[in-house]
Design a protein around this nucleic acid. Structure first.
Lengths: 109, 109
DNA sequence: CAGTATCCAATGAGATACTG
DNA sequence: CAGTATCTCATTGGATACTG
């Protein structure tokens, strides 16, 4: 299998996952989308303090990584719905264990 | 239960976990320490291209978060050993599921 | 409504040099 | 050996204003 590119370093798959869900709002976005499809404005309100620019960027990145599906209805006024792909939904157990661990950490303080 | 402080936002525990393990080298450091205690120089060599400054910082942060234990033998030449605390070892299942997910993502490309 | 364009500040992390 | 001190740069994300 050739020369493994260059800087494969060590145990990369974990870092791949981190790159995908590591953005400032990404796990929160995924969290909401696990409950169902949402429109851009709904996400903005649910997330509370995110700017349009930032939400847009995080969604595009999640889409590029195959986690989120973007459906543009091509209407005016615009209507766009975001949902999780199968790959995105497969993140649920990870989020759950991360939530459990985070809760434990916060508790023990 | 009062007013929930201020910016509790939404589902924070997951983000707590992300803040703890989200550093550039942290999951890799934890990965190695899951196999046993290591000295500073060993970690440096294992990680390949990390600078002393960066490794030092990441270790201090992991220590502050209760994940890593630092044992200074107070000898000359210096000898310092790093290991995981119980809390640190409890991250193992999370890393494993993240590794599985990351592998799946890399595979499907 | 669902964005994009610009500009800007904060953080993270690398390179290099030095030290008890 | 195990760091610390500086300096620097790249990336991330926020604020604001504008648009099809």
């Amino acid at each position: 299998m050739a020369k493994v590119k260059k800087q494969a370093a060590v145990s990369c798959p974990v870092e791949t996952t981190l790159r995908v869900i590591g953005g400032r709002w990404k796990v929160l976005i995924i969290h909401f989308l696990l409950h169902g499809t949402m429109r851009f404005g709904e996400l903005t309100r649910s997330l509370g303090t995110i700017s349009a620019r930032t939400l847009s960027k995080q969604l595009r990145e999640l889409e590029a990584d195959g986690v989120v599906d973007r459906k543009d209805f091509g209407e005016i006024p615009p209507k766009v719905e975001y949902s999780l792909t199968a790959l995105g939904r497969s993140l649920e157990p990870i989020l759950q264990s991360m939530e459990a661990w985070g809760t434990a950490v916060e508790t023990r303080r």
